[in-house]
Nucleic acid binder design. Structure first.
Lengths: 165, 165
DNA sequence: GTTGACCTTCCCATGATGGGAAGCCGCAAG
DNA sequence: CTTGCGGCTTCCCATCATGGGAAGGTCAAC
């Protein structure tokens, strides 16, 4: 029937790129599309609708494997909304964990940046913060052990044999 | 001197896995480590220190390419803290953009989940929300199905059946 | 029929990390 | 000294979602 469209139209209508539609088919996220004699894929309204479903789920950050489950629930008349809700809540938790993690990193970095003059001098608490931590044993406390890639390292360190353990 | 260590010790001391240390070397993020006659990599305190720098930068979410720049600034006595700060601020912006994006997705999903009963029945606003959007009408739009009237599927939101035809 | 836009499949790349295989090396116990 | 085990080497593959591009077939307008 005329309602069958090319992958290009399906892509435009669903918001999923043709590349991704083929990919989703290849991993079995969506069923194999019908083909014309020429090999061209044919998409009916339901197919496009399903692709839109996938796209909106992706927009909400669901990974494809979870979308696979969602599609199963979508098509299951006997599903319970509890299943869907549990899946959603679990995903919300993951999203917020990630958001929190990113925000924490930003906060730490902002703390360092706040105390950075940002002028022409090299002294920088940001660099110092990154440099912090376990200072190598027997190494200079190095308020700024900078020149290291440019200048050769004076301290001896290349004995083939000594391997302590 | 005993300060030269194996990749294993360097990994443990720096918090960067041996796998990653080799990878960083292969992409030139850190200079090629000295080798013993056996081919074993040798890491001095400075090398371990640099790896720690990389790890802390990673912990703050810097991508490797940016860490490459940071390492350059670190080792540049003539750097200006303004450069470092600009890099950091730019990165903070990206982190917060991502965090905001994730949080937005979580919020939208939470909104849907709040109105979901989560009981044994199939009716679910979450599924409905994912399904929302232009429902493909079975109308004569052979050529270009672009302008589709919104929502044309009132009957039974149960069992849209992902399987088609 | 020609042409240009579209479709097909297949391979490669991203970014950061890990897993694992095949084979060499180092050290300690026998 | 030999054996054995664990650590080291390189190389390839996998992840996750997406895109780029090549080589070649198809469709529709002119």
């Amino acid at each position: 029937m005329g309602i069958a469209v090319n992958i290009g139209q399906a892509a435009e209508a669903s918001g999923v790129s043709a590349k991704m539609i083929r990919h989703y088919e290849s991993i079995g996220l969506v069923p194999r599309a019908d083909r014309r004699d020429s090999g061209y894929r044919d998409y009916g309204p339901q197919d496009v609708h399903r692709l839109g479903f996938v796209r909106r789920a992706r927009d909400l950050g669901f990974p494809l494997e979870r979308i696979r489950v969602l599609l199963g629930l979508w098509g299951d008349p006997g599903r319970s909304s509890a299943e869907v809700k549990a899946l959603a809540l679990s995903h919300i938790g993951e999203l917020e964990d990630k958001a929190r993690h990113l925000q924490e990193m930003a906060d730490v970095l902002r703390g360092l940046a706040l105390s950075c003059d940002g002028d022409g001098r090299p002294d920088c608490p940001i660099i110092a913060g990154l440099e912090a931590g376990p200072v190598p044993p027997s190494g200079p406390c190095t308020g700024r052990p900078t020149s290291r890639s440019s200048s050769a390292k004076p301290p001896s360190r290349r004995s083939p044999s000594p391997d302590r353990r």
